[in-house]
Design a protein around this nucleic acid. Structure first.
Lengths: 200, 200
DNA sequence: GCCTTGATGTCTGTGACTGACATGACGCTA
DNA sequence: TAGCGTCATGTCAGTCACAGACATCAAGGC
């Protein structure tokens, strides 16, 4: 996070600042209509008005086009931990993180999230990437917890649990007919987690 | 490579029922010496005395060669749940699963496990696959728990937690200097998990 | 001996990704 | 205004993961 730095050397040359977004839109469109495997990187590029080579300059691989903004999300998640009051217990920090994360997904994003998730759910390769990103989230959360003096293995345990809770909550949130906010669902699932431990 | 050429591999008579294992050994050998990305599927195949095409008949993709036997492991894990006494609480079932899983990794396998893990840890693509396999494990465990009348989301929560505990325990187990058995470590980490919930 | 079966080899193609190099608009400076 | 460096992009050629189609060839049974 180098947000505080003021190096405004050059106001980012304005070619097509939207190229990445156009590629993402094109990809989601094509993936959801014609299928992931039936869509080539060249197809996506063409629909976005660029060449295949440009596609791979913006995204590490074909799957990555669906998983951008993840770092941003992780930052929001971790920020919930960083701004929690001192002496908050581990699971309290996770609760704070979940509250913060939920702001990332206001109800307006439900439909888009559902479309995207439908694509992911249909292709193992994409599920694999999603898990990987989640794992990255858990790793970052674990670091944040250790920075808060949560010892191991509690930190990793809590971090992974937080990611799991978020995953379950997210899945529930995009379920057709679901009315509650992501935040409400997440806190509810987290409650279940604590109850789990007490009944053992 | 034609039929007329003398076979340099002595026992050519029978089909090697061990072809998959030879491929796995060759792959681990090459991955750990020359690196994952510097090793082509053809390299592995050649070293195992078969063609590239045969490699891909035994393994879905290049990464898969490092992750075989996972189904077997999952079965052992789930078996621990299935053979636990009735009325065992969710985390008790996870404890049983972990005990069962630990039998899959006797101390003699430590060295091999460490070599393998070192390779995985060096390549994001392999870590991705590992996470995916773990997710599959969690899914199976979740099913086993639901079959035991553990409700949702407790079942998924417990299942994912179980996978996490196993992961942490495994990492600890292969750490140089570690003496405890995988089982002992796993039960210890599981204890931490229950403690987590009570301190929230 | 013939036939079936299953693992393998051979050939060929597609598509994901990469390195090297060229281009052309942009902003800056003399 | 001319000249220059930057940076996103295009172009070209290459590697390699993986898959379909077909041939082969050792059992093993009949």
């Amino acid at each position: 996070m180098s947000a505080a730095v003021i190096t405004y050397d050059a106001p980012v040359s304005r070619w097509q600042p939207e190229t990445p977004r156009r590629l993402q839109d094109a990809a989601l469109e094509l993936f959801s209509t014609r299928g992931y495997e039936q869509t080539t990187a060249a197809d996506i590029a063409q629909r976005a008005g660029v060449t295949e080579r440009t596609f791979f300059r913006h995204f590490r691989d074909k799957r990555d086009v669906l998983f951008h903004g993840q770092d941003e999300f992780t930052a929001v998640f971790v920020d919930g931990i960083d701004s929690a009051p001192a002496d908050t217990p581990p699971l309290g920090l996770i609760a704070a993180a979940l509250r913060s994360a939920a702001t990332f997904f206001p109800d307006e994003r439900r439909e888009h999230a559902l479309t995207r998730q439908s694509v992911i759910d249909q292709h193992p390769a994409l599920q694999e990437r999603e898990r990987h990103k989640m794992a990255g989230l858990a790793t970052s959360v674990g670091q944040a917890l250790r920075a808060r003096d949560v010892p191991e293995p509690a930190a990793t345990l809590a971090a992974e649990s937080g990611a799991t809770v978020f995953g379950i909550a997210f899945t529930t949130w995009i379920r057709p007919g679901e009315r509650r906010s992501l935040d409400a669902i997440a806190q509810s699932v987290l409650g279940e987690l604590t109850r789990l431990g007490t009944s053992a």
